[in-house]
């Protein structure tokens, strides 16, 4: 894991394309996709939209974004059992989330928080960071290093 800081420049470099991709996925105007709008409350995203957004970002940037990548990266080296307990994010897990999702205002991290509610925190900036990391991974891969992840959040329900 590489908790390397992501600079504002890196984010702004990918933001226009991320915003357009999100506007396409959410059926809204690109102007509405401001960097810090909560996607669920602000842009009416539903759970399946996150899957669609990730699929489209993979296409747009020619990167791989494994399902559940955001939560996986936030958890980092913390064992899963310490990150969540019975469907809720633990206090230490919440701390990891705050650090990882540094773009999200502190007052939006409410405790207790269900794992299933983590996507409520996501903003366009969250996905800009996902893309930046994925692009870095591509570069690392060409340099012979591999990255991977596993599935988790943004599940459609039924």
């Amino acid at each position: 894991m590489m908790p390397t800081e992501i600079s504002k420049d890196e984010i702004m470099a990918v933001y226009p394309k991320v915003a357009q991709t999100m506007a396409d996925a959410l059926g809204c105007d690109v102007e509405q996709v401001v960097l810090n709008v909560p996607l669920i409350e602000g842009l009416d995203a539903e759970s399946i939209d996150f899957l669609d957004i990730i699929f489209r970002l993979e296409r747009a940037f020619k990167v791989k974004i494994p399902r559940g990548k955001i939560v996986e990266d936030a958890r980092g080296d913390l064992p899963e059992a310490e990150f969540e307990r019975k469907g809720y994010v633990t206090e230490v897990g919440l701390q990891r989330l705050r650090e990882h999702l540094s773009e999200v205002p502190a007052d939006r991290f409410r405790s207790p928080m269900k794992v299933a509610d983590i996507p409520r925190l996501f903003t366009p900036e969250t996905f800009c960071k996902v893309v930046v990391r994925a692009l870095r991974a591509v570069q690392a891969e060409t340099a012979g290093v591999l990255g991977s992840g596993d599935a988790r959040e943004a599940k459609a329900d039924g």
Binding site: I48, I54, F55
Partner: peptide
Amino acid sequence: LAATVNPMWLL
């Protein structure tokens, strides 16, 4: 599969 087909396909 996941890299090729849109996740919304079934819907």
